[in-house]
Amino acid sequence: MARLKTYVRPMTGWWRRNPFYIWYMVREASCVFITIYALVLLVGLWRLSQGQAAFDAWRAALTAPTSIVFHFVTLVMVTYHSWTWFKIMPKTMPFVRIAGKRVSDRAIVASGVIATVVASIVLFVLVRWAVI
């Protein structure tokens, strides 16, 4: 069959034309860092299974400047992901009703942010005083 020669609107660089879409792409880009971070942990687990010397080498690699820069950028990106995750939560979850009244969007976003702060403090305390 012959290919139809209809006009197709060019989409190259579509997201660079509007700040809203630039921030959308920043949010989507956070997944690159989350994936690599998961792989860093997976390598750590692999090195752990190989014994002390292998694990110590992985542990030392975490202090390398490239590792520090990577983790710093990842921290910024994950924080942005976290904020956007709860910002859109009023749209991604079903309506919540308490005593017949719909819970406001603001309350849903706020509860997500508060949950993150609480979970982060709990994790910090747990790792600082129980695990390590």
Partner: peptide
Amino acid sequence: LSALIGAMLVFITGLGIPL
């Protein structure tokens, strides 16, 4: 999970402890 604890986890393993 990453929205709730991701940032703190990255800080602990990648920055807090190494630095």
